[in-house]
């Protein structure tokens, strides 16, 4: 079943084409990688899906319902949650409170009391491995922990689909491997994932399918194997040295 679908999605800023006439889809339970050079329009696309921007043209559907034009909080409550490339914790709150806010207002949050939400937050923090930092201030975390908190906030919203925008940037190899394990675990718990990433090591390990943006246009869409060997993709994004480095 297709859980997320975009048709002819276009986003212009003051005449500048950031995303140009893109079709995309995501199967239920799938991990889709979104890659491309900086400025290719990846984050813009995530912002369109999440409702931060209304697409200039085209439509986005979630579980068959049109979501383009809805507000971010409405989309969040329908079951799509996202992380921010530059993480956005609530610095004046504790780690636990950060996640609890997600549980309170995400999908099904309406039926949760503040207390139940805090309980749910504790479970999620356990799940992402932040249990020991629960009562710390969110502004006192390391980079890796902050990325995890960002994921925890998204997961606490009880989503069907999560959009991970560069959750591995700035992490070291060990931390990347942990994050990859975490993402696999998230999929196992029944969520679909769209993941933006520059870390090829992660893309190769977790993605079922990859699609590539370049100058706002889709230049490839297929299995990891096919896309990473595609001549256009290598030229536009990966560069010639990529083959030497990874093979």
């Amino acid at each position: 079943m297709v859980i997320l679908e975009g048709k002819n999605v276009t986003k212009r800023f003051a005449g500048l084409l950031a995303v140009s006439d893109i079709d995309f889809y995501l199967q239920d339970g799938e991990i889709l990688g979104l890659i491309g050079p900086n400025g290719a329009g990846k984050t813009t696309l995530v912002n369109v899906i999440a409702g931060v921007y209304r697409p200039s043209e085209g439509e986005v559907f979630f579980k068959g319902k049109q979501i383009s034009g809805k507000k971010p909080y409405q989309i969040g409550r329908m079951g799509i949650s996202r992380t921010f490339q530059v993480v956005k914790p609530f610095p004046g709150m504790t780690v636990k409170e950060n996640a609890a806010v997600g549980a309170m207002y995400g999908a099904g949050g309406k039926n949760k009391s503040a207390k139940e939400a805090i309980q749910r937050a504790e479970e999620i923090l356990e799940f992402v491995g932040l249990a020991d930092k629960m009562n710390k201030g969110a502004d006192q975390l390391s980079v890796a922990s902050r990325k995890r908190l960002e994921m925890a906030k998204a997961l606490a919203m009880n989503p069907k689909l999560v959009l991970f925008d560069e959750v591995m940037a700035g992490l070291n190899f060990g931390e990347i491997d942990q994050a990859v394990e975490l993402i696999k675990k998230i999929r196992e718990s029944g969520m679909s994932i769209l993941i933006i990433e520059h870390v090829m090591r992660a893309i190769k390990n977790v993605c079922d399918r990859v699609f590539v943006l370049h100058h706002g246009e889709k230049i490839a869409d297929g299995t990891v194997e096919d896309v990473l060997n595609d001549e256009t993709v290598i030229k536009a994004y990966l560069g010639r040295r990529y083959k030497e480095l990874t093979h």
Binding site: V52, Y73, S81, F84, P91, G92, V101, Y105, A154
Partner: peptide, 16 residues
Amino acid sequence: IAIREDEDAANSVGIN
């Protein structure tokens, strides 16, 4: 408090 700390993030976690 979430709005005070970061309004965009608050909106994205489902807060009207």
